[in-house]
Structures are given as C-alpha cells and as structure tokens.
Simulated scan of single mutants.
Amino acid sequence: MSMNKTQVTYEVENGIGTLLLVPPEGKPLTLDGEVMVELEQAIAGLAAEAPRMVWVRSMSERFFCVGANLNVLQNTNEETIVPWVMQGHRVLNMLEDLSMPVVAVVEGYAMGGGLELAMACDLIFAADGAKLAQSEAGLGFIPGWGGTRRLAGRIGVAKAKYYYYSGAMIDAPKAAEIGLVDFVGSKEEIEAERGRFSTAVAANNSNSLTQFKTILNQQERAARDENAAVEAFRSISCLQDPDTKQRLHDFLTKKGKKV
C-alpha cells in the first residue's frame, strides 16, 4: 500500500515496547496534525499496556524525523501556529510522562521537531552517522515543542545558544561529547547496547524506576507548562516578522520546484 505521509505504530513484545515511525515511500519522515494524532494514540496505547521500557525508532536509516512537513508550513499563519504548538507540547509531554524508561534510537537526520521528539525521551542512542540540529532559525521560527527548554537542559544554556544561533548540524560523536546524546555506535553496537540496556532495566524494580522518573519530571513541571505558553506566544511574533514570511515563501517555492 502506497503511503504519502509518516505513519506511527507501536507494539509490546516480551515486556518491551517499541514506538515505530514509518516513512512515506521515498520521502523523509515528517510531522503534521494527523501524524501527531497517531503519535498521541500510540503513546496512550503504550501507557495502557505499561511495558517495562519503550524504544522510539524510525524504519528509515536515513531519517529519524526532520520536523514539520510542507503541508504544515504552507498553512502556518498567526491563527494556526498556536494550536500546532500546543498540540506538539501535549503529545511530547505525554511521551516524556510515560512512567517507564523511554529511549530514542536516532539513525540519520533528526532536525527541528524531529530532534524535539527525540529529546522528549529519557535517553538518546545515536548511530555513528546520525546528524542532529535544532534548525528552525533558518526559516525564521523558534523550536515550538519544548526544544528551547529540553535542548538547554541537555547541553547547557551557552551551548544551546551556540548551536541554535548557528543552526549547525551536529554529528553523533560531537553530540555525545556535548551531552545531546547518551550513546553512539554502529548499527551492530546499538543493537547490542539495546539488548544490554533492556536486560538491565528489566532486572530492576519497575516501581522504583517509575518513582525516580516521576520525581525528576515533577521538578520541571511548572517550567515545562510555562515554556509551552511562551513558545506559542513567541511563535506568533516570528510569523509576524516580514523576514520570516519571505524565508518561508522562498523555501516553499524552492521545494515546489523539486516536486
């Protein structure tokens, strides 16, 4: 069956959950409102089944996720941006709030909202060829799904400013060096580490892991809720900027010529 958008599925096997991003045929994985609904439903399903841990993966080796798709960008304006931002916050907060350990496995590119998705997980394992970027400034936007808070939380405020201001692509070894990812290896090494980590998690008391995670997450809950409102408000400001409008027009025109 032909697919023209990213799809989201999940499964639980032997107490281990997998949330899987399935790419459109011949295209990178991107996000829109329908995909976010599927993601929300998958997260709710995992919460109900309560596996010992969850892995978040893409079926593509070239792309983990590159953020919003063209349809979203074409229809983004001062009226639609706030619901889009708040939907993303709600869904990624659900992912962050899953009671069990959650680990993203990033192969290929994780950019913009795709990186925000990975950072909503407890840990990030990256293939040695992975590349990550909080890249919204190139179009005149800001991270809209908690990326400002989560990026700074992972690598510190100064480095978050450096990589956001520059829009620099971060390769996996550098990402590990600065704390953006937690494990880097070849495909085989990642699979081996997944096995070791899953076994270690399963051997521990699941309630104690849940309590530990809950305590840490609750310490940031107020800041997280405030961050959602701030990102939504600042996103409106970005869209009112004539330079952002021009950048978005140029980007969409260039993409349209390639189709």
Rank of each mutant, 00 (worst) to 15 (best):
M1I: 08
M3R: 10
T6S: 13
N14E: 13
I16P: 02
T18K: 11
L19D: 02
L21W: 07
L21Y: 15
P24W: 07
P28F: 01
V35H: 03
V37Y: 10
E40C: 02
I43V: 14
G45Q: 02
A50V: 06
P51R: 05
M59C: 02
F63Q: 10
A68P: 00
N69E: 09
Q74T: 02
E78K: 13
I81L: 09
I81T: 13
V85I: 09
L92Q: 00
N93Y: 08
E96Q: 08
E96D: 07
D97P: 01
M100G: 00
V102C: 09
A104H: 06
V106L: 01
G112C: 10
G114W: 01
M119T: 06
I124F: 03
G144D: 02
G147D: 05
R149W: 12
L151W: 08
R154M: 10
A160Y: 09
Y162P: 00
S166W: 03
A172N: 05
A175N: 00
G179C: 07
L180W: 09
F183Y: 15
F183D: 08
K187G: 14
A192R: 08
R194T: 09
S198Q: 05
S198F: 14
A200S: 15
A203R: 14
A203I: 10
N207Q: 14
T210D: 09
F212T: 08
K213G: 13
T214A: 10
Q218D: 11
A223F: 04
E231T: 05
I236T: 09
S237R: 12
D243S: 12
K245G: 11
Q246C: 00
D250G: 01
F251C: 02
K255Q: 12
